[in-house]
Simulated assay, not measured.
Amino acid sequence: MESMDLEVLNTGRRWLAEGQRVVLATVVRTWGSSPRPEGAMLAIREDGLVVGSVSGGCIEDDLIERVRRGDIDLERPSVARYGIAAEEAHRFGLPCGGTLELVLEPLTPASGIDALCEALADGALVARALDMATGVARLAPALATDGLRFDGERLVTIHGPRFRMLVIGAGQLSGYLASMAVGLDYRVTVCDPREAYTDEWNVPGTEIVRMMPDDAVTEMKLDARSAVIALTHDPKLDDLALMEALKTPAFYVGALGSRRNNAARRERLREFDLSDGELARLHGPVGIYIGSRTPPEIAISILAEVTAAKNGVSLPTMLKVEGAKAAREQARAPECEAPTGK
């Protein structure tokens, strides 16, 4: 599975190599409510074929028509705005007050799309600087904290995995979780020293390592844009990862298991001299409660909680597995008999 941005870039690159004329649209500014964030991209082929998204659909339709009519400059980058007036916002399906500003870039050999796609295939985090006057783009290494910049003369966009995920265990659930995480733009590393699992691992876009989990955590030098999820159900593996990960700045550390197993895990981890504050960072049972039973459903549950943590959203207790199951059991418990006075 490819991330949306990578799919747009790779498809635009292929169309260009086939001799097609292609316009790359990038959201560079938003005001008010907006369907898509800054940096969202759409590639439009001259015959109207598209990949990617910059809105809920209406703006895409207008851009397709403009490309077909030849209303977009195919020699140098230009700027387009949508939703400036209330009538236009309604026409293009934008929320009340929503406005989008786009850079429309005709792709050429000077765009450097080949070099960008190759760098992304190697897992690099890249800054692409586009000169609006000439259409020439240059690449440079980027930091995870860098963001999109546009001053009217130069557009700098950041491409590549800004967030990393370490998954402990290469079982079936890990396969679903890893493939979905790749689609969410994570750089995914799967750690499992058990050959019976790693020999069969085949999830595109992920890296498999066969070292012990605590060594993997140490080697990755986890930062505040890292997540660790332990899924083996084997304390000898999961605990090794958790005892090291909880000491790092990782924004999310979680482990699969029942509420009883989670309580036992916390007691085991205390023996590794983890503080109460470090133990409080552990998400377990991992995921939000959606009644999930199958591996794909469990993967969705886990990634929903990870996404909330990444976006700084504090979930209510009733959404978490432990809180939801406890409340459900309490609701099902028979009511106590009223006192008789005897």
Rank of each mutant, 00 (worst) to 15 (best):
residue 1 M to P: 12
residue 2 E to V: 11
residue 3 S to G: 15
residue 5 D to P: 08
residue 5 D to K: 15
residue 6 L to M: 14
residue 6 L to W: 01
residue 8 V to K: 03
residue 11 T to P: 11
residue 25 A to D: 06
residue 26 T to N: 01
residue 27 V to H: 05
residue 27 V to L: 05
residue 30 T to I: 14
residue 30 T to N: 09
residue 34 S to W: 05
residue 36 R to I: 02
residue 40 A to R: 01
residue 41 M to D: 00
residue 44 I to T: 01
residue 48 G to A: 08
residue 52 G to F: 04
residue 56 G to E: 07
residue 57 G to C: 09
residue 62 D to I: 11
residue 62 D to R: 08
residue 62 D to F: 06
residue 64 I to R: 01
residue 69 R to K: 15
residue 70 G to F: 07
residue 70 G to Y: 09
residue 76 R to K: 15
residue 80 A to P: 03
residue 90 H to G: 15
residue 90 H to I: 13
residue 91 R to C: 05
residue 93 G to N: 15
residue 93 G to A: 07
residue 94 L to I: 05
residue 95 P to N: 14
residue 97 G to F: 14
residue 98 G to F: 05
residue 98 G to T: 09
residue 101 E to T: 11
residue 101 E to K: 04
residue 104 L to W: 11
residue 106 P to I: 14
residue 106 P to N: 12
residue 107 L to P: 01
residue 109 P to E: 14
residue 111 S to E: 09
residue 116 L to A: 04
residue 118 E to N: 06
residue 119 A to L: 07
residue 120 L to G: 04
residue 121 A to W: 07
residue 123 G to R: 13
residue 128 R to H: 08
residue 132 M to H: 07
residue 133 A to M: 12
residue 136 V to T: 14
residue 139 L to N: 13
residue 139 L to H: 13
residue 140 A to E: 15
residue 141 P to D: 15
residue 144 A to T: 08
residue 146 D to C: 12
residue 149 R to E: 13
residue 151 D to C: 04
residue 151 D to Q: 08
residue 153 E to N: 12
residue 158 I to K: 04
residue 163 F to V: 03
residue 164 R to A: 03
residue 165 M to F: 02
residue 166 L to V: 05
residue 167 V to D: 08
residue 171 G to L: 11
residue 172 Q to R: 14
residue 175 G to Y: 03
residue 179 S to A: 15
residue 181 A to T: 00
residue 188 V to I: 13
residue 191 C to M: 00
residue 196 A to C: 11
residue 197 Y to M: 02
residue 199 D to H: 13
residue 200 E to H: 15
residue 202 N to W: 05
residue 203 V to W: 02
residue 204 P to E: 12
residue 206 T to E: 01
residue 208 I to R: 02
residue 209 V to M: 00
residue 211 M to H: 01
residue 211 M to L: 10
residue 214 D to N: 15
residue 214 D to M: 00
residue 214 D to I: 02
residue 215 D to H: 13
residue 217 V to T: 13
residue 220 M to T: 03
residue 226 S to I: 06
residue 227 A to C: 07
residue 227 A to P: 03
residue 231 L to V: 03
residue 235 P to W: 08
residue 241 A to F: 07
residue 245 A to W: 08
residue 245 A to D: 10
residue 248 T to W: 05
residue 254 G to C: 06
residue 258 S to H: 04
residue 261 N to Y: 10
residue 263 A to C: 07
residue 265 R to P: 00
residue 268 R to N: 09
residue 270 R to M: 14
residue 272 F to C: 09
residue 274 L to G: 13
residue 275 S to Q: 11
residue 277 G to A: 15
residue 280 A to M: 04
residue 284 G to K: 04
residue 284 G to D: 03
residue 289 Y to N: 07
residue 290 I to N: 06
residue 295 P to C: 10
residue 298 I to S: 07
residue 301 S to C: 12
residue 302 I to L: 10
residue 303 L to H: 04
residue 303 L to P: 09
residue 304 A to D: 10
residue 305 E to A: 11
residue 305 E to H: 02
residue 313 V to P: 05
residue 315 L to G: 08
residue 316 P to G: 06
residue 320 K to S: 03
residue 320 K to L: 15
residue 321 V to K: 07
residue 321 V to L: 06
residue 322 E to C: 03
residue 325 K to S: 10
residue 325 K to N: 03
residue 327 A to R: 13
residue 329 E to P: 00
residue 329 E to W: 10
residue 334 P to R: 15
residue 335 E to F: 08
residue 335 E to P: 01
residue 336 C to D: 04
residue 339 P to F: 03
residue 339 P to D: 00
